[in-house]
């Protein structure tokens, strides 16, 4: 069972066996979610490139686009942003755990490390979302 470091990179269940993490423990869950979150973040990276390319259309067009994502009519993107932040903070915390495991730290307590690092990441994420939300609220009336 994958636990951390090198063993997290194994694939012994066939081509897409890593997707089947049910009833296989927290190690497999972390392993699968790290890959899924990584793919989601990579897709977002290219979406980010696309959105930033709109800077070339000038200030009015770019600000209109960003405003439509934040204050409507396409403000559903805020929900997607919140989900994206969940994915990013999860991936980062699990990545830190993998690095520590690779360096030989916490191999015997990888489950505890997983919960501690992910809990810390979720607290940081909530703080980030709170302050980012305050910025959105303060900008809404401008």
């Amino acid at each position: 069972m994958p636990s951390g470091g090198e063993s997290m990179l194994e694939s012994d269940n066939g081509t897409l066996g890593w997707l089947n993490f049910f009833h296989k423990g927290i190690g497999y869950f972390a392993y699968t979610m790290h890959r899924i979150s990584g793919i989601v973040i990579l897709l977002y990276l290219y979406l980010h490139f696309f959105v930033l390319s709109n800077l070339l259309r000038g200030g009015v067009a770019f600000n209109d686009l960003i405003t439509s994502f934040t204050y409507g009519p396409y403000d559903i993107f805020i929900v997607m942003d919140i989900l994206l932040s969940l994915v990013i903070f999860y991936h980062g915390a699990n990545g830190v755990r993998l690095m520590l495991n690779e360096a030989g730290y916490g191999l015997k307590h990888h489950k505890l490390m997983f919960f501690i690092l992910e809990s810390g990441a979720m607290i940081l994420m909530l703080l980030f979302l709170y302050y980012a939300w305050q910025v959105l609220l303060s900008g809404g009336g401008v």
């Binding site: 800077l55 600000n63 405003t67 302050y131 910025v135 401008v142």
Partner: peptide, 27 residues
């Protein structure tokens, strides 16, 4: 990336000014 992204998230979403004037901030 943990360092870069932390700075990026802070600058872009917390201390980057209003989303309504984001173009000015980015440029």
């Amino acid at each position: 990336i943990i360092f870069f992204l932390g700075v990026h998230l802070y600058v872009a979403h917390i201390n980057g000014g209003s989303p309504i004037e984001l173009f000015d901030t980015v440029v």
